[in-house]
Simulated scan of single mutants.
Amino acid sequence: EHWHELLNPEFKGRSAILDVPSIGIMDAAMAIESRGDIKYGDKGNMTKEEIDKTIKILIDAKKSGQFRAFWTTFDESVNLMASGEVVIQSMWSPAVTAVRSRGIPCYYAPLKEGYRAWASCIAPMRHLTGLKLDAAYEYLNWYQSGWQGGFIAKQGYYSSVPETARKFMTDDEWGYWYDGKPAKGDIKDPYGNLMEKAGRVRDGGAFWERMGKVACWNTLMDESRYMVRKWNEFVSA
């Protein structure tokens, strides 16, 4: 299975793309390069020429009716997939969890080209001093202490400190989410809703396998402002 399935005419009118320029264009680039249209020097930092070529391909695809929707919110992505209006899209992990918790099949395909990855980083602002700086570090220490990592793990996300997250997960949850092992019991989301039956294995396998297949990371491009303008031309075309 390949990224270019997003642009496959077989899914005409039932494909969707995220309308956040810095993320949507990366998904598009993965699909376009997979199809053989463009060989990017660095998908995370495109040149103006690469941006122009990418947007032209997307506009042509849009005008041909390839895309059912451009979504911007969590609920939109869930409802599009759960209703059957869309059958293929790039989704946030908690959104896949939400669809599955409704008893509707939804999974991550093991794409040959690898994953588009992102990371959420938190750091104190440099103007902080005294009590405010102490409070910021206190929050950061709590954030990495395990509860947050254990919570997001049950949505499919990874913690930057897995060792502390593990303290807030059962052995079976850790085995399913991190080690890629078959679930010994039913797997539930962070809110207690049934998501997977015993015996299921996580899409993509273990943490080590998934992170070893990252093809590109979301970044702020040098030509970010230009890219956003061109992306808006695509959405409004």
Rank of each mutant, 00 (worst) to 15 (best):
N141P: 06
L111G: 01
Q155H: 06
G114N: 05
A183R: 11
I104E: 12
V161G: 02
W118K: 11
W142Q: 14
K132T: 11
T73I: 00
R68T: 04
N79Y: 10
S160H: 15
Q66G: 05
I122R: 09
D75Y: 12
R102I: 07
A183W: 11
W92E: 00
C106W: 02
G175T: 14
Y178Q: 13
K167Y: 05
R126Y: 15
L80F: 04
W147Q: 12
F168A: 10
P182I: 02
S160A: 10
T164R: 08
A117E: 02
I88H: 01
W92G: 00
L128P: 08
I59D: 05
P94S: 05
A69G: 01
Q155Y: 05
W174Q: 13
N79F: 01
W92P: 00
E138I: 11
V96Y: 06
D134C: 08
Q148N: 08
Y157M: 09
S64A: 14
G84M: 11
G175A: 09
A82T: 12
F74G: 08
A82E: 11
I59M: 14
S77K: 02
L128A: 05
A109M: 13
D75N: 13
M91I: 00
S64C: 09
G146R: 07
I152T: 04
N141K: 13
K167G: 06
T170M: 07
C106F: 03
S83W: 07
N79R: 06
